[in-house]
Design a protein around this nucleic acid. Sequence first.
DNA 1: AAGATTCATTGAGATGGCTCAATTTGCCGC
DNA 2: GCGGCAAATTGAGCCATCTCAATGAATCTT
Lengths: 239, 239
Amino acid sequence: MSDSSKSAQKAPRHNCDTCDVRHKAMCAAVGHEHTDQLQAIVSHRDYSPGQVIFEEGDPADYVFNISDGEVRLYKLLPDGRRQVTGFLTPGDFLGLITESSYAYGAGAIGAVELCCMKLTNLERLLSDIPPVRERLLDMSRDELAAAQEQMLLLGRKTAREKILSFLLYRHKHLDRTDSDASIDLPMSRTDIADYLGLTIETVSRTFTALRDEGLIELPNPHHVIFPDLDAVRDAADAA
Amino acid sequence: MSDSSKSAQKAPRHNCDTCDVRHKAMCAAVGHEHTDQLQAIVSHRDYSPGQVIFEEGDPADYVFNISDGEVRLYKLLPDGRRQVTGFLTPGDFLGLITESSYAYGAGAIGAVELCCMKLTNLERLLSDIPPVRERLLDMSRDELAAAQEQMLLLGRKTAREKILSFLLYRHKHLDRTDSDASIDLPMSRTDIADYLGLTIETVSRTFTALRDEGLIELPNPHHVIFPDLDAVRDAADAA
DNA sequence: AAGATTCATTGAGATGGCTCAATTTGCCGC
DNA sequence: GCGGCAAATTGAGCCATCTCAATGAATCTT
């Protein structure tokens, strides 16, 4: 992780003023006149691929913003079955807390950098700078809508529809390199399966089937190219 | 619905001061000194069983609090498949809005009474009385945690586990008449099936199986009695 | 009270996705 | 470039749940 950051590091490494995800994060609601207060309460931590950030039920003192990398959220059943409830990307808020402990587990997919904030400091920030609470409410509104959409996927879509919806969601929200019709999938097949309520075998078979139909190209398991995006959209909707 | 309310109606029918769900609703954050402002912006509407309140995508001018009755939230696929994403009970907030329209459809299960508020008035309330936004954020935090739990259920539990989890959730959250180990299920088998990602036949068969095992009693399709609540809890957890 | 309608239950057979098992591929260190 | 390991793919058979169909129960209408 020594040189994984996107820009040169002569300037103070973690500077809220120059943070390139600030506009996407809750911090966007902190006016520049309050940047000092924000800067004073954040610290940063690095995680290596696969590392657990926290487990569901851990007592929660900190909340986080994703600075870099991708994070999986998950819940476990006593026998080990796992449901991945979401993937977080830079700018996303991490740390849903109920009854003083985390409501889900979180783990680094690749190398991850988090911007950490003590819960007590967040609470002070919320009372000092009201727009931050407004911002958090807006963000959780979006999360709630995404959760509803995911319930529709989990409860009512076929394996094929699940995969297609997942790919399109990634394309829409994460890889907006203009008209580039391709996406990265940094997570494993196991993560995808646990996110979509499938097994790795079904995920793999479905990818193969979509490739054989010409709907996608798979130069490697972590990169998908869409030769015809509209055809994928049609296939995702159709009954 | 002429006499469906719980208390006598000599006093003004819809009075925030005497509203019996105020403490559960977002309104709990409105201090008594501000009750007038709240009262001024709410109105009430009745819905009959089965009636649609709004559909997903409808332009959203109003948000609601459930005053009485139970509401189902749902999303539809183009071919008619339906996912019920939640059931709302008195005190719950109704009206998740993204891009100026409702993120889900909503329908009355039995007779329902809603407390209605124009979105613009809610926004004024939020800026006039900051604790209301805090309250809404807390409520959406709980909703988000419930959504995560539901994803675990939809993605990773068996039909039997789904039904048992559903029954226990109802018992925990909705029918706290002390140690009374019984619950009402006002919704249809179709609603339950669409909530749990099953078919009505599987729901019905599973109820029958649980009854035959002695885990539940079913005096009628809308009432469940638990002879041994701990046995149900064990069955819901076990692998 | 009989008929009609809707909802729930039960039965029988079909199937999509799962389980178990074997390869194959890609990656890492030396 | 070569073993060794983890991840992904592929194959074959199975089973939990679905589909299709019939029956039963409850409610509403007249």
